[in-house]
Computed example of a mutant assay.
Amino acid sequence: MTAGPSELIDARIAALTDWRGEVLAQIRRLILEADPAVEEEWKWDKPVWSRSGIICTGEVYKKVVKTTFAKGAAVADPAHLFNSSLEGNTRRAIDFPEGAEINQEAFKELIRAAITLNLSRPAKTHTKGEVR
């Protein structure tokens, strides 16, 4: 039997025996607290959280745990959490280095804002052969 996305995320967190596993687990917990309808996926060999489209990914590097928001450039960030990938037109990210305090309420609001954006956009569907 193949492991599902949640089990793969569990395994990734368990394999990180330092601060990075704790941070990834905290990010995951906050995302699911922000909206229990969020779906966990496993794409590109990393955790992905979605609701009516991708919300964000959880990437682990040597010096940071990065949360990349797929449509972050279109999401209001009043607490100025985005601190990485600021130059692009679409994505925005938050790098969490060792010892960083996560502003939990602001992070959950960012998740909710990304979900609201996803829900406000009609699903991209088109029939075969249709020109767009």
Rank of each mutant, 00 (worst) to 15 (best):
V48E: 06
I111K: 02
H126L: 14
S120I: 04
I9F: 05
E33S: 08
M1V: 14
T127G: 12
T67K: 08
S6R: 12
D45Y: 07
A114N: 05
V131F: 01
A37F: 01
V38G: 04
L16W: 05
F96E: 07
T68R: 07
T127D: 15
E87H: 15
E59G: 07
V23M: 08
A73F: 08
V60S: 13
L24G: 02
A76W: 03
M1W: 11
G88D: 15
T90K: 15
L16Q: 12
E59N: 11
A123D: 14
V75Q: 04
A15Q: 11
T2K: 14
Q104W: 03
E41Q: 09
L30S: 03
T57A: 07
I54F: 11
E109V: 05
L117S: 02
A76N: 09
H126P: 00
W49V: 11
L119C: 03
E101V: 12
P122M: 09
A15T: 10
P122N: 10
I27H: 06
W44C: 04
S52E: 08
P122H: 13
H80Y: 03
G129D: 07
R51A: 01
C56R: 00
P97D: 12
N89Q: 13
S50G: 00
G72R: 01
E59Y: 08
E39R: 07
A11W: 04
G99F: 04
A34R: 04
G21H: 08
A3M: 13
S50K: 12
A37G: 05
D45T: 11
P47G: 10
G129P: 01
W42S: 06
E101I: 09
L110A: 05
L117C: 01
V38R: 09
W49P: 00
A79E: 11
N118F: 03
A79Y: 10
A100W: 00
I9H: 03
A3N: 14
W49H: 11
E33P: 01
R112D: 07
E7T: 11
T116E: 15
A100Y: 00
A79W: 06
D18Q: 11
V48Y: 13
E39D: 01
K128C: 05
P97C: 14
A70D: 14
V48Q: 02
S50H: 10
P47H: 07
A14H: 06
L24A: 14
L110P: 01
K43V: 07
L119R: 09
